[in-house]
């Protein structure tokens, strides 16, 4: 879509949305939000970017193939269960290593797990959107 207004506003909007998506991801444990919603916000920001500047720009910005990002997310989620093995509790039991600050505890396995959810959602949706956009 070739629109000057859109192309001017979108980079600003996209960066704000991406930061917001990470904010939503991190606050999710105690306040409305979480990996799934954060992932959806990030995916829609990327979709917006794609509509404004084309699919190649998005691919360049992402560096990795979106499906690899999704795969990485699944890997994070799977590995977030591994520390519980060493603590002798069932797989994927949440473990916290630091007291929280600002309502957010960053060093914890559920945070890694939620990040995994986030990346899977971003990766899968963006991959489909990009593939559709490039379809002739």
């Amino acid at each position: 879509m070739n629109s000057l207004i859109l192309r001017t506003v979108v980079p600003l909007l996209v960066s704000i949305m991406l930061v917001f998506s990470i904010f939503v991801l991190l606050r999710g444990h105690s306040l409305p939000g979480g990996g799934f919603i954060g992932g959806l916000i990030a995916a829609s920001s990327l979709a917006l970017y794609m509509i404004a500047s084309g699919s190649q720009a998005v691919r360049k910005a992402l560096v990795l193939h979106p499906m690899s990002i999704g795969g990485l997310g699944l890997l994070f989620a799977v590995f977030s269960g591994v520390p519980s093995y060493f603590s002798d509790v069932p797989y994927l039991t949440g473990l916290w290593y630091e007291p929280e600050f600002f309502h957010i505890s960053l060093i914890a396995t559920p945070v890694l797990f939620d990040l995994g959810v986030y990346l899977v959602v971003v990766g899968s949706i963006t991959a489909i959107a990009l593939a559709l956009e490039e379809w002739h």
């Binding site: 999710g28 444990h29 105690s30 306040l31 409305p32 939000g33 979480g34 990996g35 799934f36 499906m67 999704g70 795969g71 997310g73 699944l74 989620a77 799977v78 269960g81 797989y91 994927l92 949440g94 916290w96 929280e100 505890s105 914890a108 559920p110 797990f113 939620d114 995994g116 959810v117 899977v120 959602v121 990766g123 899968s124 949706i125 991959a127 489909i128």
Partner: peptide
């Protein structure tokens, strides 16, 4: 689970294995 948002706590902690299955499905569907 150190979380006050029970929706998210269920997703990433109490029922994390289910979520793991679901995101795997999302990825495969993608």
């Amino acid at each position: 689970a150190h979380g006050r948002n029970i929706v998210n706590v269920i997703l990433v902690d109490f029922r994390a294995l289910d979520t793991l299955g679901e995101i795997a499905v999302v990825l495969v569907a993608g």
